[in-house]
Design a protein around this nucleic acid. Structure first.
Lengths: 233, 233
DNA sequence: TCAGTAAATTGGTCTAGGCTGTTAGAATGA
DNA sequence: TCATTCTAACAGCCTAGACCAATTTACTGA
């Protein structure tokens, strides 16, 4: 890996937490100890810890130690959350049906958002997602073809983010969401089993890798009566 | 002062920007130079800079310098933001028209959300808000009557949050927002100068004081085609 | 004059420590 | 047994450098 050491350590520490090596509420090893384990200076390790604290994953207590914070549901919203996790949190069974999946030429919007080069192709996926068998949203996800050529359809559709991390060592950083409201077209209405003209919650999300490269543009339309976003400020 | 040096420097730097010593887009002195000016190590100064970068006030460019950023809209969304500030950020002139304003008996929802006692009354305000003379949203705000009895209508409608802080020493803490989509009723449509059935972005916000007491419940319906939320995750 | 190259400047990362204040727990005394 | 005091461990904060990579600036030769 070529990324800075403190980013690598940051990812490793997060992995330890995700893998359950360190559980919620537990104290993680002392800074000096971890610095020694990773063979870096304490300042470097502190940078990694600081990042996790900023993300709300860790919590420092002076004189006591650094602990794994217990994330609230709404805090999950602050991370880049998948539909599956979202449905899980609501106690619903997530499912999805792929409408289309193919390499193609990007739209003007996609070129701009994903900062694509000329002649660069994209992988575009159309999906309808369900919670407890009921259609919740219609989604179009676009990623640069260059990023996913090495992966199988299986690897991309089931858990794209995990595949990126594990197979390509690429880590999602921040994302920008725009949320507005619109009405269902005839086509969307049929996919979502609603009436034409029904209210939809429209979200576009542009996700960036840790190095700042945009890597995924998703346009989602949620059934207004079946879905809501919850944010804590 | 007893606060950490990097916090003191952070405040001083922010002051320089607010006072117009460093203008938007301008380069601020180099890290090494500032570190020398403040007589601290570069690492300490970088902590102060980092905080300002996190707040979106400064912007770093490797090999070039650190610049005063022009704040984007979505950055403002991270705080508890007023409609007026929001419109300001978009370069629009904010205005509002009060539809109704009276003490009344709360609805069941309001009792639950605001944790009202039996027979406790509320102040309910209906408003239409405008940006550049165009209707943007229709809003119903409810606060417990007990909280606002000491204030004039003027104090409440112009700047409720400021009044709370200055006159009652009450500080807003966190808030929870629910965002969904719905269609305009005949009544709402006429207020917002749209057609019945047009898509609306529906937000409810329950705001809490720093001590955890809920103090304001706001139900807002934004014209789908004239407004969007932007979140950065 | 202009293009190409070298040097200086800048932020990014990292080291190997030091000192301070807080905290939990052990030792001590009533 | 209970309360107090002491101590070791901890995170917070800070220093004074180092080297790297990106960018800008200055210089040099055609």
């Amino acid at each position: 890996m070529s990324s800075p050491v403190y980013i690598q350590i940051h990812n490793q520490l997060r992995k330890n937490i995700e893998d359950g090596k360190w559980k919620v509420g537990e104290k993680i090893p002392a800074e000096r100890e971890l610095a020694n384990d990773f063979s870096v200076s304490r300042m470097t390790l502190r940078q990694a810890i600081q990042a996790l604290v900023d993300e709300g994953i860790l919590e420092r207590r002076v004189g006591s130690g650094t602990f794994v914070a217990n994330r609230k549901v709404q805090e999950k919203m602050s991370g880049v959350t998948s539909f599956t996790e979202l449905m899980d949190a609501m106690g619903k069974k997530a499912a999805s049906k792929t409408i289309s999946y193919h390499l193609t030429i990007p739209s003007q919007t996609e070129v701009e958002k994903l900062k694509l080069g000329p002649d660069e192709q994209v992988l575009r996926m159309e999906r309808v997602r369900y919670g407890n068998e009921v259609p919740i949203c219609y989604e179009i996800a676009t990623v640069p073809a260059s990023l996913v050529q090495q992966f199988s359809k299986e690897e991309i559709t089931t858990s794209f983010y995990r595949t990126l991390e594990e197979k390509a060592n690429l880590y999602p950083g921040h994302a920008i969401q725009h949320i507005s409201a619109t009405k269902a077209t005839e086509k969307i209405a049929s996919y979502l089993q609603i009436k034409r003209g029904d209210a939809l919650l429209r979200m576009t999300q542009l996700s960036y890798l840790q190095d700042g490269r945009p890597f995924e543009y998703v346009h989602t339309q949620y059934v207004g009566s079946r879905f809501e976003f919850v944010f804590e400020k």
